[in-house]
Design a protein around this nucleic acid. Sequence first.
DNA 1: CACGCCATGTAAAAAGTTACATGATTGC
DNA 2: GCAATCATGTAACTTTTTACATGGCGTG
Lengths: 190, 190
Amino acid sequence: MNALSYALLSMLFRKSCSGYELMKMMGVFWQAKHSQIYPLLAKLEQKELVTYEHVGQTGKPDKKLYSITDLGTAALKEWIDHSPAAVPVQRDEFLIKVYAIGLSDPNTAIQLFEERIAMLMEKAAYLQSQVSEMDELMNGMLPGMNDKHFGRYLLYQRRVLTGREEIEWCKWAMSLIAKPSGQARPAAEE
Amino acid sequence: MNALSYALLSMLFRKSCSGYELMKMMGVFWQAKHSQIYPLLAKLEQKELVTYEHVGQTGKPDKKLYSITDLGTAALKEWIDHSPAAVPVQRDEFLIKVYAIGLSDPNTAIQLFEERIAMLMEKAAYLQSQVSEMDELMNGMLPGMNDKHFGRYLLYQRRVLTGREEIEWCKWAMSLIAKPSGQARPAAEE
DNA sequence: CACGCCATGTAAAAAGTTACATGATTGC
DNA sequence: GCAATCATGTAACTTTTTACATGGCGTG
């Protein structure tokens, strides 16, 4: 049972989904490919942590609607409460480029950061639409822990925050690239 | 040539290092194991992107000091300036747990966040020591793009920022867990 | 008519982790 | 004496990515 297995169980705990839908939703965590998700779902089904039923659709291909079982829910809870947290991995090629940005000329460097900002803004727009959707469902109330949407709400809020913060950092970096070096550093805040 | 190859070149661009040293430094990006780094360095050497010389040491085992070649530097610059950015991957088991936090009782949930904060604070202390070291080297000046430490400075500042922000988010999440649900949401800022 | 979305799957290759291996030195 | 740090490597295994495969429906 690896992290991806628990990610699938975690999403199925909120609602029953097809493999395709789970693949799309995985974006909240990291982007797994369908070629990894479909075989894993089959394995989880063998272990009776999930079940599925065929759902016929008109105008679309049929799908398998997966649901978490009681056994699956118990396994998920056990993992959440009692397994030690693995070290998070952030594989980001952009940061490698930043580390050796001295190799580029200022114009190319600025362009790199501008493309990053564009990417972040696109993501932010999607996230905002998701958060707005949740807001509507809850009409003006902050969700509490008993709320079905609580975990998802926390996660999306976090993504919005980190996105905003990275845009600010990009702008700061760009200001340093544009300005001549050796400026006096302002006194540290706080 | 994968991302890890460029990460190694990027670090060697700043200064010549042993494989062991590169493994330690990889923490700025993500934590790669030595079993992956040593064979990769051998491959990069075959491609003549890096060279090494044996350095004898007293009281410590001998080491191979790797340096980037002109060919390596050219390859790195080409990649930075012209290769499209791959989608960043953030594999974080903690976030999976947060998504399904509704399964836990409030006390266990609070504990999960408290452990996360402890981990982040430990990281922050290390980062702060690194930033302080850089600050001393530059005594009171902000680095400019021509500076050898520039990229590294940008990255460490970013890590400090994201760490702080995540601690704030954890505290916010914990406050929602502790409070009864269904509170009126304050008006959005900005 | 080509492309993208929905929907599922398998096979091969690449990347990453864990375990096996060695060995001196320093601190508790 | 035992564990940690420095230092390098290989082998087995797991995880992830890329490519191969199929097929209807809607949009420009």
